[in-house]
Each structure stands twice: as C-alpha cells, then as structure tokens.
Simulated assay, not measured.
Amino acid sequence: MALFAPAVLVLAAISLGIGGLAPGALYASAPHTSPAPANLPTMIGLLQQASNLGQFAGPMMLGALAAHYGWPAVAFAAVPVAPAGAMACLLLRGADNQ
C-alpha cells in the first residue's frame, strides 16, 4: 500500500522530531550516569560516539538485510532493538537511583 506524499511528509517530520530528542537526552543523562564529575567529558564522548556509530552503521545494516532477504527481514533485526533499548534505559535508571 503506497502512502500519499502528505502522509509521508508528516510521518517523516514525526520521525525526525523524535530522533532529534536523542542528543538532548544523551547530554541531559550524562551527569546522572557518570561515576564522578571528573569523568563527565569522557561519558559524553562515549555516548556521542555510540550514537554516531548507530546512526552510521544501522541504516547500512538494515539496507543490506533488505537487499539480500527483502524488507520483511528488516523487522527481525529492528524489532528486537526497541526492547533492548528500553531495557538499557531501565537499567540506567535503576543505577541512577542507587
């Protein structure tokens, strides 16, 4: 089923808007997850590098899956990432409360 151009535009804007929250969330969470104030610059650097790696490698990996196995195969790689990310957030939140 093909979407009309206005629907694609709205969905793309929502996707970019949600994705744009990631850098702010990373910088806001860094002071809470850093073991010591002296480690804050290192923590921000590691978070930024991991974020950039995901933005660089993720689309290529999903594109390779789609090219070799078709678009339905992308779900088998992308869907488990959401619960894994949610679990990581809960673990970090639990570590912050201790």
Rank of each mutant, 00 (worst) to 15 (best):
L47Y: 05
L26D: 07
I44L: 09
A66C: 11
A67S: 05
A22H: 12
G19D: 10
P72S: 11
L47T: 12
M60P: 02
A66M: 09
Y69G: 03
G17R: 03
A67D: 08
P72N: 08
P80L: 00
A5P: 10
R93G: 08
L90E: 02
V10K: 08
M1T: 14
I44M: 05
L92N: 02
A95W: 13
L47S: 05
L46C: 11
P35S: 03
G24T: 12
A78H: 08
G63W: 02
A66G: 13
L21K: 07
L91V: 08
P41F: 06
V74P: 01
I18M: 09
M61R: 04
A50Y: 09
R93I: 10
A2Y: 10
A36F: 00
A64G: 01
P83L: 05
M61E: 02
A30T: 08
G85L: 04
Y27F: 09
P59L: 04
S34Q: 07
P72D: 08
A2G: 13
G94R: 11
A36M: 03
M87T: 06
Q49P: 00
A2F: 12
N52V: 15
P23E: 11
V74E: 12
G17S: 01
N39E: 13
S15M: 14
S51N: 13
A64R: 00
D96K: 13
L16M: 15
L21T: 08
P80H: 00
R93S: 06
S15G: 15
M43T: 15
N97V: 15
G19W: 06
A28M: 11
A2K: 11
S15T: 14
P83T: 05
L90V: 08
G58Y: 03
Q49N: 11
L90A: 07
N97P: 02
L21A: 05
G24V: 12
P6M: 06
A75Y: 13
V81W: 06
P72E: 07
Q48M: 15
A77H: 02
A78G: 06
H68Q: 11
L92H: 01
T33Q: 04
A38L: 12
Q49H: 13
F56K: 04
M87G: 01
I18V: 14
N52D: 10
